[in-house]
């Protein structure tokens, strides 16, 4: 594993307690849900925010997140670091991320295997990288820099992809395994992304999962996808985050949890955001699977074992 702690031990003047993310279901936090979540009898396991939404100087977003953080463990998920970037990372953005992490003391911090900025333009999308040696070296050095600046381990998320690069010389699972091995980062396994990419790139999701280093996975993402077709009429799935999690993705999730034991699991819903009870229903479905599998998982949680 790694000697970089998930959060700094001995940080005794912490303003928030309870920072460890439980192996339960969490939800992506939407401003319109904050009051409902705080008042709800159902206590969600944790909440996750996009770091960039809390990089403003002050105002209502910080007030809402402070109230949430005083009541729940929090995970911070970056969407703007552009770790796959060809032209280096933005120091100013790393500093902003550090400010969010220092202020809210999240249990987990994650980012994407993707790029979103090139030549100062930010495209607001998670764009794909080629799986070759040069990109591997670059991504590893970027993750090293981020972990060093934050003073903690980050998790890297597998992408949804629609295309391949001819220059790729490794599979995605080889590429991600090597990054985790070299940098000591943890992994965020997005099972919807696995299903979307596997369908789009014509491989079996279970083959991908059997090659994925599950022992480094510290969080799972679930989300809904849209269905389209490509130029030849083959299925083309889009990672839309605008609907419930697909039944096929739930089946894969059940298999993964059966294999690795309970892991913090986030349900994402970012577009056409529904009322809180609809998103809560998705989280409760993940909770059910986690509880059922925990009962069967006689050897106990690997997280508890790993301390």
């Amino acid at each position: 594993m790694t000697d970089i702690p998930a959060w700094k031990d001995g940080d005794t003047d912490a303003s928030f307690t309870d920072r460890t993310i439980p192996a339960r279901a969490g939800a992506g936090l939407k401003p319109s849900h904050v009051d409902r979540i705080l008042q709800d009898d159902y206590r969600i396991g944790f909440l996750e925010v996009h770091a960039e939404n809390y990089m403003g100087d002050g105002g209502a977003p910080h007030r809402a997140l402070t109230a949430i953080r005083q009541n729940f463990p929090l995970s911070v998920h970056g969407v703007g670091l552009s770790i796959g970037s060809e032209k280096g990372l933005d120091d100013e953005h790393i500093t902003r991320l550090k400010r969010v992490v220092d202020r809210y003391e999240p249990g987990l911090v994650s980012e994407h295997l993707a790029w979103s900025t090139h030549d100062l333009s930010y495209y607001n999308d998670l764009l794909p990288v080629p799986y070759d040696r040069k990109t591997l070296d670059r991504v590893c050095s970027h993750i090293d820099r981020v972990q060093e600046a934050l003073g903690r381990k980050i998790l890297l998320e597998n992408p949804s992809t629609y295309v391949q690069f001819e220059q790729s010389s490794m599979s995605e699972t080889e590429f991600i395994s090597e990054i985790a091995r070299r940098t000591g980062c943890g992994l965020l396994l997005d099972i919807n992304n696995v299903f979307v990419s596997a369908t789009n790139q014509k491989y079996r999701p279970l083959t991908y999962l059997s090659e994925f280093p599950l022992e480094k996975v510290e969080e799972i993402h679930l989300a809904g996808h849209a269905t389209d077709i490509d130029d030849e009429g083959d299925a083309l799935l889009i990672d839309a985050h605008d609907r419930p999690v697909d039944d096929e993705v739930w089946k894969l999730y059940d298999i993964v949890i059966g294999q690795m034991g309970p892991v913090p699991t986030l349900v994402e819903w970012d577009n056409d955001v529904p009322e809180w009870p609809i998103l809560r229903r998705e989280a409760m479905r993940a909770d059910e699977i986690l509880e059922r599998r925990a009962a069967n998982y006689l050897l106990g949680s690997r997280h508890a074992a790993a301390g």
Binding site: L127, Y162, V163, Q164, F165, Q167, K202, L236
Partner: peptide, 17 residues
Amino acid sequence: GIVGPDGKKADKRFDVY
């Protein structure tokens, strides 16, 4: 150099981005 599976063309796929 941007392709679909088995090297097939990827115009509609690139259009997703």
